[in-house]
């Protein structure tokens, strides 16, 4: 690993001052993504700022029923928290399907949001990759792209955002709170990650000197009836081919509230707004679910190795809604 200087920040003010003054500095949370990428030479920070001593480890109920999650809350602790298990079961499930128990004990909420793609060419310094080295090309286009995206992709990059947690956060309309020396901003989850366009190296709307301090979940009654379903090449400890975060409320056979997001298909957790629009007010039937899934996936484009994801996403969407309807919540 390339040598770096190490600083541990005792408080948020010190952390954001340090990142502003050390060029090429990076925060480190659990290190499960950053250490790996530093070893591969993909990340080369001159200074690593340890933020694990920051007092951002709480999961607190907000007045009005929402929940505030500190950026340093470990993934395992978040999934196991009573408030999350009872009120946002899709979030507990999403986290529990990700990585392994050891990694979830290390990984932080902030680090999970900012984890980078698992595209093998992004990791391989000898390959062409517009994300790692802008303008160098994209070896995934005609290479091994079974795990790559089918929605919101561009001619520059077809990588996916690998997080499971973020798919649930997108469905919940979570707010990411960020802080820098300039002050505090609140970024809706839908605006946090970016699609690649011509600039796949820009993955989020976070500035290089901004620290994620918290994630807030709004009070959302429909979330109590929710599920996360992940399809992958092996039963556990693998990234999603496709995943679905879904919440559904049905009254007298009609959909009265619905939240849907897809994982494994795009450079950001994909909120399925079109499917939600079609379902709201529609009869809660498999026919409606199919219509909504077809409309959401209509703009999808696949490569020879990953085109199967389009049909897989449709079916997983329908199946998750059907399961919510017949078996109820994962809570």
């Amino acid at each position: 690993m390339r040598p770096f200087a190490y600083v541990s920040a005792p408080d948020v003010a010190t952390a954001v001052r340090a990142i502003g003054t050390e060029p090429g500095a990076k925060f480190i949370g659990g290190g499960t993504n950053l250490v790996d990428l530093m070893r591969e030479g993909v990340e080369r920070p001159g200074t690593v700022i340890d933020i694990t001593a920051l007092p951002l480890t709480g999961v607190e109920e907000l007045p009005g029923g929402g929940v505030r999650i500190g950026a340093l809350v470990r993934n395992a602790h978040l999934a196991a928290h009573r408030l999350i298990r009872n009120r946002y079961p899709l979030l507990s499930q999403a986290i529990l399907t990700g990585a392994s128990a050891q990694l979830r004990n290390m990984a932080t909420a902030g680090g999970n949001l900012l984890q980078r793609t698992r595209c093998p060419y992004f990791y391989d310094g000898a390959a062409a990759c517009n994300k790692r080295e802008p303008g160098s090309g994209c070896d995934a286009m005609d290479g091994f792209n079974r795990n790559h995206g089918v929605l919101g992709v561009s001619d520059s990059c077809i990588a996916t955002h690998p997080s499971d947690m973020c798919v649930a956060l997108a469905a919940l309309d979570a707010i990411v709170e960020v802080e820098s020396v300039r002050g505090v901003r609140r970024v809706p989850m839908a605006e946090f990650h970016r699609l690649p366009g011509d600039t796949p190296h820009l993955e989020t709307t976070l500035a290089a000197d901004e620290l994620v301090t918290a994630v807030e979940l709004p009070a959302l009654p429909v979330a109590a009836t929710s599920r996360y379903r992940k399809v992958r090449d092996r039963a556990s400890y693998a990234f999603a081919l496709v995943s679905v975060a879904a919440a559904l409320e049905v009254d007298d056979g009609t959909v009265t509230a619905v939240r849907l997001a897809l994982g494994g298909v795009a450079a950001k957790p994909w909120r399925a707004y079109e499917a939600e629009r079609i379902l709201l007010g529609a009869p809660a039937t498999e026919e409606s679910f199919r219509r909504a899934a077809a409309a959401e996936l209509a703009p999808a484009t696949g490569r020879p190795q990953n085109a199967f994801k389009i049909e897989l996403a449709r079916r997983t969407l329908v199946e998750t809604l059907r399961q919510l309807l017949t078996e109820g919540s994962a809570a």
């Binding site: 009872n86 399907t97 392994s100 809570a331």
Partner: peptide, 30 residues
Amino acid sequence: AGSASAVTEHVAATGIALSGAEIRERMSGN
């Protein structure tokens, strides 16, 4: 301590039995 896993049918449940499937899922990192 009462934690659930990805194969637990209801994540909000308490007193989750440690079946073979639960052990396999909870040990999948090894």
